[in-house]
Simulated assay, not measured.
Amino acid sequence: MADLGLLTLGGTVLGGGLAVAGVHSYLSGRAQRQALVDRLADDGPPPPVGRPRRFAALDRRLRATEAGRRLERRLASTGLDLTPGEFVACTAGVAIGLWVVAAAALAAFFGPIAALVAVWAAFGYLDWQRRKRIEKFINQLPELSRILANATQAGLALRTALGMAADEMEAPAGEELAKVAARLAVGHSIDDALGELAERLPSRELVVLVTTLVLSNRAGGTVVTSLRNLTQTLEERKETRREIRTQLSQVTITAYVVPLMGVGTLLLVDRIAAGSVERMTSDFWGQAAVVVAFGLYGLGFFLIRRMSKIDV
């Protein structure tokens, strides 16, 4: 009986130890897999080390929805160090703050308008950051094409040349090429990896470069000569875009000044005759006039920006 008891105790201890080791191995493997998925995912930037994330619960709820995933991809294309939860919380806080300030400074009618303007401005800022990042990436394309041409001429494969360009170039080109190199490292084709790059940062120049690389990879040919010619063309387009932007800078400023003049006039009227804005918005026709005026200012802003937009 004593031997049977010791045998049972030993078997229990051994089974418990194996169970603990199995659970530990499972959790460790699951954590490693999740870390690999997060590192290779292109839906959003990897979380930076050292900065605690705020609004984690809200962020998890947003990521579970389609709108939240679209917002995450939108934030990823801007290069901002923000999660969807942080962006939504900050935007809501600013909107509520402007609502209170506008209602207290002018009239209660302007509170919702100020909140809507805050939300529109937040998403407009994301679009501006995205365009700025794309513009910076376009300016790096001549250097990227030159690096790829030199690496290809030296006998390196296109996959190796892309990895070398990712190490040598600064952001955003370095970060985007690092994602392409990570895709290639896990077995994705060059066509798919470069196609995803063109989708993240859409531009005519990048599409031309991607098309050149894909066709050269498929059919072979003089890729070095093509990249040399493409480098010269990208340099010329870069200078042309810079000249057009300089000539249209006054028109761009006018698009922003005109709506600000309207808001400034409204504040000036309320300062000269205290309470006039509140009395004006106390009935339907006054509110309708304010809405129509803001709509016309918004239409003017849109038309000026539309007319000053020249695609090169």
Score class of each variant (00 low, 15 high):
G5F: 07
L6H: 01
T8F: 06
G10V: 01
L14S: 00
A19I: 03
A31R: 15
Q34L: 14
R39Q: 14
G44H: 12
P48D: 10
G50F: 10
P52H: 12
P52K: 03
R54I: 07
A64S: 12
R70M: 08
R70N: 12
E72Y: 08
R73A: 13
A76M: 06
A76K: 07
P84Q: 02
C90I: 12
A92V: 04
G111R: 06
A115I: 08
A115L: 08
L116G: 09
L116D: 06
A121M: 04
G124F: 07
L126Q: 02
D127M: 02
R131P: 01
R131I: 00
K132S: 08
K132V: 01
I138Q: 10
I138N: 08
N139C: 04
P142V: 05
E143P: 00
L144I: 10
R146A: 11
L156P: 05
A157E: 13
G163E: 09
G163W: 00
M169E: 07
M169I: 09
E170L: 15
A171D: 15
A171E: 14
G174T: 15
K179Y: 13
A181R: 11
L184W: 03
I190P: 02
A198Y: 05
L201I: 14
P202G: 04
T211P: 01
G221V: 08
G221Q: 02
V224A: 13
T225Q: 11
T225D: 15
Q232I: 09
E236I: 11
I244D: 02
Q250L: 11
I253T: 14
V258C: 04
V269H: 05
G275V: 09
V277F: 05
M280Y: 06
S282K: 03
G286N: 02
A289D: 02
A293P: 01
F294S: 01
L296C: 08
L303E: 07
I304H: 03
R305T: 10
K309W: 03
V312M: 11
